[in-house]
């Protein structure tokens, strides 16, 4: 803007209309130039977002309503038939149930444990950075590789877990081949992986609670730890906790690597989850229409949660 003012001809009082016209022209030219630059800068990104995000989603929605098979030359609309087939399929209902169970173990488990770890780390001064770093480690380690390690840990004969169980006189199990234990065990690995991530967010939330509030609480007589927790810490942490719940839920719904490496959905579909089904139907069995329908179901669930999260983020400002 400064450059425009500097470029103006000196004001001449007897020619106001001429001046306006020429200024308008200059301004218009500059605006056009700015717009063209902007399009040049944003162009590649916008085109790629359209081709790699928006159009593919439209494509999936389209395919989900057709009978198209990968490689086929023709297709026809079948309306909701793919979805009808999906929800009539007892296997898919089991997949949804498995995913729900997995999520319902991982989310509360992760939240409670990470909250406890964060509060305990915060309650003292020593070794904070060490504990924080160690607990964060699983979140960034290659999950496919760590899953192989978990397999060794859970191995029915040479695994550490069964050796410990035997030593303690407890019954052992073939954890990953037993229909009853496989999903809870995968959920424990899920908690193991997400714990550090949730902890870091909660630690940030704890650090944002004003110190004064605890002082005021002290003077007012809120001086037992569980009452501080109930009356100050947890309410002040509320928005952060809501946020963490949603994000960890999204992570849990996207569980794939451990299932692929450890169980391939078995035994007898006991660990079949949404994303694994999506992968298997779409890319192994090449049942494209069915796979697209699974994808749409997955998308709807994730989108709904993300929108709730965005809503919460909007109202996140709690204090002043």
């Amino acid at each position: 803007m400064t450059s425009i003012e500097m470029g103006q001809p000196p004001v001449q009082e007897d020619q106001p209309s001429l001046l306006h016209r020429s200024t308008d022209a200059v301004l218009r030219r500059l605006r056009l130039a700015e717009s063209l630059t902007a399009y040049a800068l944003a162009g590649p990104g916008v085109v790629l977002l359209l081709t790699l995000y928006i159009l593919p989603v439209a494509g999936v929605l389209f395919i989900a309503f057709t009978d198209w098979q990968f490689g086929a030359k023709t297709l026809s609309f079948v309306g909701l038939r793919n979805f009808a087939e999906l929800f009539a399929d007892s296997e898919f209902r089991k997949v949804l149930a498995n995913t729900a169970v997995y999520t319902l173990i991982v989310v509360p488990g992760t939240i409670v444990l990470s909250l406890a770890v964060a509060l305990v780390i915060e309650s003292g001064q020593t070794m904070r950075a060490f504990y924080r770093a160690v607990h964060f480690l699983p979140y960034m380690a290659t999950l496919a590789a760590m899953a192989i390690t978990w397999e060794a840990l859970l191995h029915p004969t040479v695994g550490l877990l069964n050796q410990l169980m035997t030593a303690a006189g407890l019954p052992t199990a073939n954890w990953l081949r037993d229909e009853r234990t496989v999903l809870p065990i995968l959920a424990v690995i899920g908690i193991w992986q997400n714990l550090g991530f949730a902890m870091v967010l909660i630690l940030a939330g704890l650090a944002a609670i004003p110190r004064d509030l605890y002082d005021a609480a002290d003077v007012d007589g809120i001086d037992v730890w569980f009452e501080r927790l109930r009356l100050i810490t947890l309410p002040m942490l509320g928005p952060v906790l809501m946020f963490v719940v949603i994000v960890v839920t999204l992570h849990a719904l996207k569980v794939f690597d451990t299932v692929q490496v450890l169980t391939q959905g078995g035994p007898n579909h006991a660990s079949d989850v949404l994303l694994y089904t999506l992968y298997r139907e779409s890319f192994q069995y090449l049942r494209t229409g069915y796979g697209a329908a699974v994808t749409v179901v997955f998308l709807v669930i994730v989108m709904a949660l993300t929108l709730i999260q965005a809503r919460i983020m909007d109202r996140k400002v709690h204090y002043q």
Binding site: D212, A216, A217, V219, D223, P235
Partner: peptide
């Protein structure tokens, strides 16, 4: 003695009102 038992009340610079109450 803990602050609660000292029979004092305090007004803080930031007021330290409980924002969620």
């Amino acid at each position: 003695l803990r602050p609660k038992l000292r029979d004092v009340a305090m007004v803080f610079q930031s007021y330290a009102l409980y924002p969620h109450m």
